[in-house]
Amino acid sequence: MKARPMIRLCLPKEPYWLDLPFGVRLHVRPLTTAIYEAARIKGWRKARAVAREFADLKAVGGDISGLPDLRDDDAVAGFSQLLFAQSLARAAILDWEGVLDAEGDPAAVSDTHVADLMLIQGVAEAFVGLYTAPHEAVVAEGNASRPAADGTSAVGLDIAASAATTVPPAPVTEAVPPT
């Protein structure tokens, strides 16, 4: 009999330090599903709201110089990821070291400074990766009910692999993009 997958509950319970590139250290609260999901949803919601206003702002000559072309779904997804990193960092960061303001003095942890820190691609990527790593490790340990990569169902054992196929699969056709 095969052993059933198990999850080891070893997630951090107390605030801890993350070492990021460029000498930045962040003191963060432990990540919870609620913090993660709220930041993810907030990033997507804000990106979609800005994307809806993008065309109107451009049409009236508004300043869109700091924004990607939000008529493109990939650009919206990238912008959403930035907003996710900023939201996650705002919820997580309690204190930091190695972050200076424009005058070269230690910067106070504030919503604006956190957002500015997450604009630095190497820092944002390292932060999200390191901060979410404990939760990713739990999933990687083999939770048999983890979500499928496409988010549509749970991944489990493939019990149909040896089943005989009696009907050929439907032909695959290329989707025609909407006009």
Score class of each variant (00 low, 15 high):
Met1Ile: 04
Ala3Val: 10
Pro5Trp: 03
Ile7Gln: 15
Leu9Arg: 14
Leu9Met: 10
Cys10Lys: 11
Cys10Tyr: 01
Cys10Asn: 15
Leu11Asn: 09
Glu14Asp: 11
Pro15Phe: 00
Leu20Thr: 04
Pro21Leu: 06
Pro21Ala: 07
Val24Trp: 03
Val24Gln: 02
Arg25Ile: 00
Leu26Glu: 00
Arg29Leu: 01
Ile35Thr: 05
Tyr36Met: 06
Glu37Tyr: 11
Glu37Thr: 02
Ala38Ile: 00
Ala39Pro: 04
Arg40Leu: 12
Arg40Val: 05
Arg40Asp: 07
Ile41Thr: 11
Gly43Tyr: 03
Trp44Gly: 08
Lys46Cys: 00
Lys46Met: 09
Lys46Pro: 00
Lys46Leu: 09
Arg48Trp: 02
Arg48Thr: 11
Val50Asp: 14
Ala51Cys: 07
Arg52Gly: 13
Arg52Leu: 13
Glu53Val: 00
Phe54Gly: 09
Phe54His: 11
Leu57Gly: 07
Leu57Gln: 13
Leu57Cys: 14
Leu57Ser: 14
Leu57Ile: 01
Ala59Asn: 05
Val60Pro: 02
Gly61Lys: 01
Gly61Thr: 04
Asp63Ala: 09
Asp63Val: 05
Asp63Asn: 13
Ile64Gln: 03
Ser65Tyr: 05
Gly66Leu: 01
Leu67Trp: 07
Leu67Ala: 04
Pro68Ile: 01
Arg71Gly: 12
Arg71Ser: 14
Asp72Met: 08
Ala75Leu: 07
Val76Arg: 03
Ala77Arg: 12
Gly78Ile: 01
Gly78Trp: 08
Gly78Arg: 09
Ser80Phe: 02
Gln81Ile: 02
Gln81Gly: 11
Leu82Met: 10
Phe84Asp: 08
Gln86Leu: 00
Gln86Asp: 06
Leu88Ser: 00
Leu88Arg: 04
Ala89Thr: 01
Ala91Thr: 02
Ala91Arg: 03
Ala91Asp: 04
Ala92Met: 02
Trp96Pro: 14
Ala102Ser: 13
Glu103Ala: 15
Gly104His: 07
Gly104Val: 02
Gly104Phe: 08
Pro106Phe: 03
Pro106Tyr: 02
Val109Gln: 10
Ser110Cys: 05
His113Ser: 15
Asp116Phe: 09
Asp116Ala: 15
Leu117Ser: 06
Leu117Arg: 00
Met118Asn: 01
Met118Gln: 08
Leu119Glu: 11
Leu119His: 13
Ile120Glu: 12
Gln121Ile: 01
Gln121Asn: 13
Gly122Arg: 12
Gly122Glu: 13
Ala124Gln: 07
Glu125Trp: 11
Val128Trp: 01
Gly129Arg: 10
Gly129Val: 00
Gly129Ile: 00
Leu130Asn: 05
Tyr131Met: 03
Thr132Arg: 08
Ala133Ile: 00
His135Ile: 06
Val138Gly: 10
Val138Ala: 14
Glu141Gly: 15
Gly142Leu: 05
Gly142Tyr: 12
Gly142Phe: 04
Asn143Glu: 10
Asn143Ser: 03
Ala144Asp: 06
Arg146Leu: 05
Arg146Gly: 06
Ala149Ser: 07
Ala149Glu: 06
Asp150Gly: 04
Thr152Gln: 11
Ser153Glu: 13
Ser153Phe: 04
Ala154Val: 02
Ala154Gly: 12
Val155His: 03
Ala160Glu: 12
Thr165Cys: 12
Thr165Lys: 14
Thr166Val: 11
Pro169Lys: 08
Ala170Pro: 06
Pro171Asp: 13
Pro171Ala: 14
Val172Cys: 07
Val172Thr: 12
Val172Asn: 10
Thr173Met: 10
Glu174Ile: 07
Ala175Met: 10
Val176Ser: 15
Pro177Gln: 10
Pro177Gly: 07
Pro178Glu: 14
